[in-house]
Design a protein around this nucleic acid. Structure first.
Lengths: 229, 229
DNA sequence: CCGGGCTTGTGCACAAGGTCACAAGGTTCC
DNA sequence: GGAACCTTGTGACCTTGTGCACAAGCCCGG
């Protein structure tokens, strides 16, 4: 059991999969399906059914044996666990090609993330309107974060500016940072940092492609050929 | 020893870190430094020194005890292992905001990845020039892949088109795919697939932010929380 | 030529994650 | 009411990854 809060510690690997389940469940709900089995959800998420059950069991016993999980209920529980029931204002720093694309990205709003501000160090970019927002100067970062209650910062600057921007974000009170710059950034304890590096992903692909194809497995996407429509 | 090729199987986790070492080493070389210790490299890469040594030992014994690693040599060995000594033509499918940004991304060319073609299903986008390349129709994908020897495909389409595009890429002969679409995509065995999902990264950050900060430690302080897929 | 000082390379113990298999527990139909 | 059937929840085991600690090995000064 241990469904009483306080005792359940959700593994990192599970946390990383919850958003995938969430998305699959939302699609399922939209299709009008009321309940879903771990096997079906596993197929949609591209993982193992036992893993789905174990992951979901960390949230509590929300399934019904012999039946499955009620889709709406599960969506709600996962959302609550992920903290998506509230609004997360986001600031994007660095409005180059990538920052521009991120500002216009539809996927954020749908999950409770709202782009609250755009910041760039380049004076020639100021005042420009991107995705309906005015680009503001780097010196306005602290004020913007404080006034709009920004809790998540996205770094889309060149590598050379990444650490400096991270420091500014932390100083301004941001406690979660998503770094797209191709640079290693360090943050003090208590601040979460995740990175997305496009070039690194390609290099990993390059390795597996140019390599002895003896054992070429790969992580995600088993061999399930079903999932999504 | 086991430095004889054929016996070394490089762990997945190590492969994911090699590009980071590579980048740090290139910067180090540019600064004119000839040799580097595992400790210094670890600091630059944001990981543990023992991990660096173990990772590098999979490539062979390229270090000198009491001295460190010769930077140039190490760069070369890592590049060779990652398969970056050759040119990798890339096709980007889906020239929306993100595809546009990716086409203009500088970081690719610097590592041997060359954007060889841009493809989009939207007829109104055809003929448009993006990053010096003409956007071509989805029906041209097979020809483009074959004629320009494209080996890596990047999916930057909406989620609804992702699986279809992946199938087309595989059919055209592409054996490595990087998926940016927020959808689970499955590919046959022998094809490598990695995914980058912006919304999921934010949701993971949301979890750690909105959560009991009891034990939020992780390994960080200077270490980047690992990403996985 | 030898000893001291560094730094690599690695054995080992442990932690985290994944998979299997099955008992527990609910549902349905007669 | 009960039996057959289905699906969850989880214990056990295995694989992968991490970090420590130390021996092996190299360089340099005297």
């Amino acid at each position: 059991m241990a469904d009483r809060a306080g005792q359940r510690r959700i593994p990192e690997a599970t946390v990383a999969r919850l958003p995938i389940y969430s998305r699959a469940l939302l699609e399922t709900a939209e299709a009008g399906v009321g309940t879903i089995s771990s096997e079906r959800l596993a197929a949609l998420a591209g993982v193992n059914a036992a893993k789905v059950r174990k992951d979901l069991s960390y949230l509590g016993s929300y399934g019904t044996r012999g039946v499955g999980y009620e889709v709406d209920h599960l969506v709600h529980e996962i959302s609550r666990e992920l903290g998506l029931t509230q609004d997360w204002p986001v600031v994007i720093v660095g409005i180059g090609n990538l920052g521009h694309a991120l500002a216009n990205y539809r996927g954020f709003g749908a999950r409770g993330f709202r782009v609250a501000a755009l910041v760039d160090a380049d004076p020639t970019k100021l005042e420009r309107k991107v995705a309906g927002l005015r680009v503001e100067g780097l010196d306005a970062l602290a004020d913007v974060v404080a006034q709009r209650d920004v809790s998540i910062g996205i770094i889309a600057t060149p590598a050379s500016a990444a650490q400096e921007v991270a420091d500014l974000l932390v100083e301004a009170g941001v406690r979660s940072i998503l770094n797209f710059a191709p640079a290693v950034v360090s943050v003090p304890e208590g601040v979460s940092l995740r990175k997305v590096d496009l070039a690194i992903e390609l290099q990993i692909l390059s390795f597996y492609q140019s390599h002895p194809p003896d054992r070429l497995v790969d992580e995600s996407t088993e061999t399930v050929r079903e999932a999504q429509g």
